[in-house]
Design a protein around this nucleic acid. Structure first.
Lengths: 149, 149
DNA sequence: GGGTAATAGTTCAACATTAAACTATATGGG
DNA sequence: CCCATATAGTTTAATGTTGAACTATTACCC
């Protein structure tokens, strides 16, 4: 009903890019969602397991940064993973403020088993882009992501 | 500690692009977060107001699609906006299953007042990219987003 | 027309998420 | 050593989010 907002070309360009960016990210995330739910995990839980698989044991703070959540949230996520016997945490001796979170055998088996299908889903989603386009997208996104914290 | 997962080139390329995509989206969202919180809104609430400002009155289902949330969630988001006197909903006469959600004067004033700064934040975040890069990013993201739902 | 399927929205319970206050540990300068 | 400061993690309250079951309305079709 009301008159639409009309921005400058610069604004329109950035806003359009931003909307597309959000939707693309949501779209690919949605594609991976089903497998994760089927395994009885949340996105955050899977994100933690995946990070531990690829990077080895990490402290909670690093995990929070990796999966883009708050510290407070990580406490719960790790707790729930621990209840499921998928990770274990131990205080670090050098600095007892830190916890080292590591995969258990069961956790490693689970996430390692899920990963090929997970990667396949993402590959499939990205197949609408050529290899060069994927690399260009990555380059542009990295520039954008690095610009802030 | 365990050996890192080593995927094929194709997998590595798609996964790297996906991670960068998520982080870029999070990064820009984070930049806009502060203004939204300061206005006493959530991301979802602001998303609804923004959609209504740009597109005019919409039904809850369309709003859900726009802001990438579930119907059930929209019930609450709209309810909270209504409590704040920012939107009003009226049953549509042609089809009484539909609600028409529209901005009130107060709601319009709020979101229209916020928008320039909001747009400015996004423009600023995207300034690390040239105009051409922004358009290329948009093109790639749209391809990716359209591929699924 | 009446029954069936489809669609819009609501409700509800379970859970996730955040921000802020808090505890515990470490660091560094006087 | 002691105090101030910083950092990692936890707790708590408020709120957001989802998915599934539910109601209400409409569309379709025999």
């Amino acid at each position: 009903m009301g008159p639409r907002y009309r921005g400058t070309k610069t604004e329109v360009r950035a806003l359009a890019a931003f909307v597309a960016l959000q939707r693309a990210a949501e779209s690919v995330m949605g594609a991976t969602q089903e497998e994760i739910v089927r395994a009885g995990l949340t996105q955050s839980q899977f994100g933690v397991l995946e990070a531990l698989l690829h990077l080895g044991p990490l402290c909670a703070k690093d995990l929070a940064r990796k999966i883009l959540r708050t510290k407070g949230n990580l406490t719960l996520v790790i707790e729930n993973l621990e209840k499921g016997g998928l990770v274990e945490r131990t205080a670090r001796d050098e600095d007892r403020r830190f916890l080292t979170v590591a995969l258990t055998k069961k956790g490693r088996r689970l996430v390692a088993g899920m990963f090929p299908r997970h990667a396949g889903t993402i590959v499939k989603a990205f197949r609408v882009l050529t290899a060069d386009e994927q690399e260009e997208l990555r380059r542009l996104c990295r520039k954008l992501g690095k610009a802030q914290g």
